[in-house]
Computed example of a mutant assay.
Amino acid sequence: MSNIQFIRNQNPKPKPKSDELKFGTIFTDHMFVMDYSVEKGWHDPRIVPYGPISLEPSTMVFHYGQAIFEGLKAYRNIKGEVVTFRPMDNIARLNRSAERLCIPQVDQELLWEGLKMLLEIEKDWVPAAEGTALYIRPFIIATDPYLGVRPSHTYKLFIILSPVGAYYTEGFKPVKIYVTDKYVRAARGGLGYTKAAANYAASLYAAEEAKKKGYTQVLWLDACHHRYVEEVGTMNIFFKIDGVVVTPSLEGGSILPGITRDSVITLARSMGYKVEERLISIEEVFEAHEKGKLEEVFGTGTAAVISPVGELNWNDRVIKINDGQMGEFSKLMYDKLTGIQYGREEDKFNWVKKIC
């Protein structure tokens, strides 16, 4: 778009090799930035060299946590094209998060145009090796230099890009999950359905406790009864019980409506699987295991797409799922989704958007 200013980075960095890529440690040469003020609304969209930003110590985001973000990826498909997966759903979710945190709504088409332009400029940063991608992180922060508690009157929106390696570098390895009924991530009426920075800050303590016990992530239960399954630290959660795919319902507003979660539900139903979105208690999960009906457990998210769960620990009751191996359904969903993303499978749902 002609109204998006572009300032080229005069000191471009060397592109990393695909086998050097990890997650979130390397960033491209440019970033998208846009400002908000009450007088001008969202204005001055620009693509500038990636680098530090200057903020006053009194900037409100540091004190009251008025910050939201998104996460999606760009891929180099089997034709060599750069594509994205369901980007407008991520942009729409950014606005839902913004509404809950009193951040002004962003023009979705303008943000999409800015993202496309940034990706076109940075297309050479999109890795081509199997399983690699360019991670996209849009975020908004409150920028008023003010110590009173109220919504900020000014904001900054950024999009930064990071080439990332294959999540499973040595094949699928089911993760071990620790179920906590001591701490809660979110409650009904709170921020759980948003991608607010505060949600992730609230999850850190329990996650560190789980790691000390040898577990990868935490499975959260509901804040009221400490009984009903909600989500894992960075993923939505699914159970395959006696042939039925079950995932917690979103209706309470305490669970993030994941894009990958929705993609799995849509794909599974289109293939004839029965999928239930409902309350599911941790007792039901363990009882299903005792009866030999708990076939698979897996998480869904942008980073791993599908992450099989091989072990659950709840109140020192430990169960192994599918002998600690990747389940057939989990593998099918992974193959289907990554196949669509990389162009190996037909995109029947028009999820993939070509950039260049």
Results as ranks from 00 to 15, higher is better:
L94A: 07
P14V: 00
I7K: 13
G171W: 12
K320L: 07
E208T: 05
R261E: 06
A197T: 10
N9Y: 01
I91G: 05
I136A: 07
I141W: 13
P57Y: 02
V244E: 14
K240V: 15
L161K: 14
E170Y: 06
K17C: 03
G292P: 06
F286T: 06
V83S: 13
D44R: 15
H289P: 09
S152V: 09
N11Q: 13
R76Y: 01
I91H: 10
D29V: 07
D262Q: 15
K353S: 00
G339I: 13
G192Y: 11
M333K: 12
V297H: 08
V352R: 15
K291A: 01
G41Q: 01
H153I: 04
V179C: 14
S58T: 08
A196Y: 07
G233Q: 04
I259H: 09
W125A: 02
E230R: 13
M60T: 15
L267V: 15
R317K: 11
L119G: 11
N313P: 00
D35R: 15
V352W: 12
G131W: 01
W351E: 14
I136P: 09
E328W: 03
P87L: 10
G233P: 08
F62A: 05
P52D: 08
F349G: 09
E170L: 01
K17G: 10
L221W: 07
F329H: 06
A187T: 11
K116H: 04
G148E: 08
V164M: 12
L21H: 01
I68Q: 09
M60E: 14
T59V: 10
G343T: 08
Q108A: 13
K195T: 07
G148V: 01
G165N: 10
I265G: 02
Y178H: 14
E122D: 03
N236Q: 08
V352I: 15
R261W: 12
T154N: 10
E295G: 05
I141P: 10
I7P: 00
R278A: 10
F6W: 04
E99V: 08
G339Q: 15
S54F: 12
G299N: 04
K336E: 14
A67V: 06
P138Q: 13
P16R: 02
F238R: 00
T59H: 14
E276Q: 14
L55G: 06
F172Q: 02
R278G: 04
E311C: 14
A268F: 12
D35W: 07
F85A: 03
G324W: 04
